[in-house]
Simulated assay, not measured.
Amino acid sequence: MSTCSSSSARPLKIGIIGFGNFAQFLSKTMIKQGHSLRATSRSDHSQLCKQLGIPFYRDMSAFLESDNEVVLICTSILSLSQVVKPMPFNSLKRPTLFVDVLSVKEFPRDLLLQVLPENMDLLCTHPMFGPESGKHGWQDLSFMYDRVRIRDEALCYSFIHIFSSEGCRMLEMSCEEHDKLAARTQFLTHTIGRILSEMDVEPTPLDTKGFQKLFEVKESTVKDSFDLFSGLFIHNRFARQQMQSLEEALEKTKRKLQERMESST
Rank of each mutant, 00 (worst) to 15 (best):
residue 201 V to C: 13
residue 156 C to K: 02
residue 28 K to Y: 06
residue 256 K to E: 13
residue 108 P to M: 15
residue 182 A to Y: 04
residue 79 S to M: 07
residue 88 P to W: 10
residue 6 S to T: 15
residue 171 L to V: 07
residue 196 L to P: 03
residue 197 S to A: 11
residue 264 S to V: 02
residue 214 L to W: 04
residue 156 C to P: 02
residue 207 D to S: 09
residue 184 R to G: 03
residue 27 S to H: 09
residue 13 K to D: 11
residue 30 M to G: 05
residue 153 E to P: 00
residue 121 D to Q: 03
residue 173 M to F: 13
residue 236 N to Q: 06
residue 75 T to C: 04
residue 119 N to W: 02
residue 26 L to W: 01
residue 214 L to K: 03
residue 223 K to D: 08
residue 169 R to Y: 09
residue 100 D to S: 10
residue 197 S to N: 15
residue 18 G to T: 02
residue 135 K to R: 15
residue 72 L to M: 10
residue 12 L to G: 01
residue 120 M to P: 09
residue 87 M to I: 10
residue 160 I to L: 15
residue 32 K to N: 12
residue 190 H to P: 02
residue 138 W to Q: 02
residue 111 L to W: 09
residue 159 F to W: 07
residue 234 I to Q: 06
residue 261 M to V: 05
residue 67 D to F: 12
residue 37 L to F: 00
residue 260 R to E: 10
residue 127 P to E: 09
residue 70 V to H: 11
residue 148 V to T: 05
residue 51 Q to F: 00
residue 163 F to G: 05
residue 244 Q to C: 08
residue 61 S to E: 13
residue 162 I to S: 10
residue 122 L to T: 02
residue 209 K to A: 12
residue 240 R to L: 09
residue 238 F to N: 12
residue 167 G to W: 10
residue 80 L to Q: 02
residue 229 F to M: 05
residue 69 E to R: 00
residue 241 Q to I: 06
residue 96 T to A: 07
residue 202 E to G: 00
residue 193 G to V: 04
residue 200 D to N: 14
residue 245 S to Y: 01
residue 80 L to C: 06
residue 227 D to P: 02
residue 199 M to D: 02
residue 196 L to W: 08
residue 135 K to F: 14
residue 213 K to P: 00
residue 248 E to M: 12
residue 76 S to Y: 15
residue 190 H to W: 05
residue 93 K to T: 15
residue 228 L to S: 04
residue 215 F to Y: 13
residue 178 H to V: 04
residue 226 F to W: 11
residue 82 Q to E: 11
residue 249 A to W: 05
residue 39 A to C: 10
residue 212 Q to T: 08
residue 183 A to P: 05
residue 33 Q to W: 06
residue 210 G to N: 08
residue 262 E to H: 10
residue 121 D to I: 01
residue 122 L to N: 04
residue 243 M to W: 09
residue 249 A to P: 01
residue 256 K to Q: 03
residue 263 S to N: 08
residue 179 D to G: 01
residue 209 K to V: 10
residue 180 K to S: 10
residue 82 Q to R: 13
residue 87 M to A: 15
residue 234 I to E: 03
residue 242 Q to T: 08
residue 81 S to T: 03
residue 121 D to K: 03
residue 193 G to Y: 09
